[in-house]
Amino acid sequence: MARTLKLRIWRGDDKTGALQDVTVEANHGEVVLDIIHRVQATQMGDLAVRWNCKAGKCGSCSMEINGKPRLACMTQISAYGEEETITITPLRAFPVIKDLVTDVSYNYKKAMEIPAMEMPAGMKPGEPRMQQVDVERSQEFRKCIECFLCQNTCHVIRDHEENKKSFAGPRFFIRIAELDMHPLDILRNRKKTAQEEHGLGFCNITKCCTEVCPEHIKITDNAIIPMKERVADEKYDPVRWLGSKIRRREEVL
């Protein structure tokens, strides 16, 4: 049942680094995170990796496996061929701290820029009455585990550090959409500010974010597109001309 697995793991820090080859035992049913832990316990005591729940619930173990942004705890090694070497690298859109750990503080800064939920004045605890169908749309977005894989994969910032200042990213577009569709939130113009302040206009609906979302949130179809459509109702749609200025998603690794 055990097999020998060949890995290439990126090791290094914010200054230098390289891919290192390792060979390690793997058992049936194991996921990439198990293998990393075995490497850590037996060969590289100081290999840095983030994780918590080991069940796809916390969004800590995001990394790139053979160039694909994934949760290491939800990636079965059986998905890779016997002879295949699995390459494990840190998220590319964020600066490396050490090995597989990156500095994701960008995301927390963006969270801070989105105005919080605003309750109707006079609403008292216990009073809200909402139907299941009305909460479901926002509930979909509240499934987000903040793994930031969508942020990492979005071409607007993946290779364009300069766009980070004015682009909140798909994770925070769904946050805005969640509040916009929240039955109790009364803050107005969320769609408009998404466009004007949080960089929704940069998005040209490539859907790469939706593809990598481990929670299967339909980021583009259910959040981005509806917000864009309604913004477009109100003003000239800049998507088309912006789209032509931004490079297409490049092949990764």
Binding site: M119, M123, V135, R142, H182
Partner: peptide, 13 residues
């Protein structure tokens, strides 16, 4: 709930 949590609902909301 006042801070934004969205729990599942009963028929009465």
């Amino acid at each position: 709930e006042m801070w934004g949590a969205l729990f599942d609902r009963t028929k009465e909301g």
